[in-house]
Nucleic acid binder design. Structure first.
Length: 199
DNA sequence: TAGAGGATTGAT
DNA sequence: TCAATCCTCTAC
């Protein structure tokens, strides 16, 4: 079942980030479907420094975050990587969930081809890598998440609360105390979650 | 309009 | 530990 606009437009972004674990993100490009189960996410809110929309600062880049939930927010990071988020909350409340890692479930051969990976191992473990595997680039910024090309499904996978870990987010040292918020969610012991420099 | 820096990655 | 790479934002 495709996740509805109502799922995304709820007001608690950390709850949505947690609930997205176990759901499946798909793209369908040129007739080829690729997808993976979400195993790692991060929540971002205008209320904290880690967020592009901190203090409700609206710019051409983050404008999509201010719209009603259920849209894709895709931006270029470090000049190299496309990072994919889903916008949450209602219009005017800038919040989003960054998808950081997937466990491949469909179109694996195509993803290997797109990433140039020798094997499927680690192919979708990392926010920059999974967008490449699924063929997501900035042309999808503002895209509706109930489209025929890009969507998230609830396949009925049950995620036990004890399997969910909440830890600080990655790569936002500039956010000061907000970098310590346990807003990174991942499935414990899942081999597809990111490891950072072996840590 | 210049300059700094980044929600990453992979090689050394 | 470090370079790649280019867009975005801020300050002037």
């Amino acid at each position: 079942m495709v996740l509805s606009a109502e799922f995304y437009q709820r007001k608690n972004v950390t709850r949505i980030a947690r609930e997205l674990l176990g759901k499946t993100l798909y793209t369908r490009l040129n007739g080829i479907t690729t997808g993976g189960m979400i195993v790692e996410t991060e929540a971002y809110s205008w209320k904290e420094r880690g967020c592009h929309a901190y203090k409700n600062r609206k710019t051409p880049r983050n404008e999509v975050m201010f719209r009603a939930g259920g849209l894709a927010y895709v931006y270029l990071c470090y000049g190299i990587h496309n990072l994919f988020n889903v916008v949450t909350n209602v219009e005017g409340m800038a919040e989003a969930v960054l998808i950081r890692a997937l466990e491949p479930v469909g179109g694996i051969g195509e993803m290997v081809k797109r990433t140039g990976a020798r094997t499927e191992k680690r192919m979708t473990s990392g926010p920059g890598k999974l967008t490449k595997a699924l063929g997501i680039d900035r042309s999808y910024n503002g895209f509706n998440m109930q489209s025929k090309q890009l969507w998230i499904e609830d396949a009925g996978t049950v995620v036990h609360p004890r399997k969910v870990m909440a830890v600080p987010r990655i790569g936002i040292d500039y956010a000061g105390e907000d970098a310590l918020l346990p807003w990174r969610f991942l499935l414990k012991d899942n081999p597809w979650v990111t490891t950072l420099h072996g840590k």
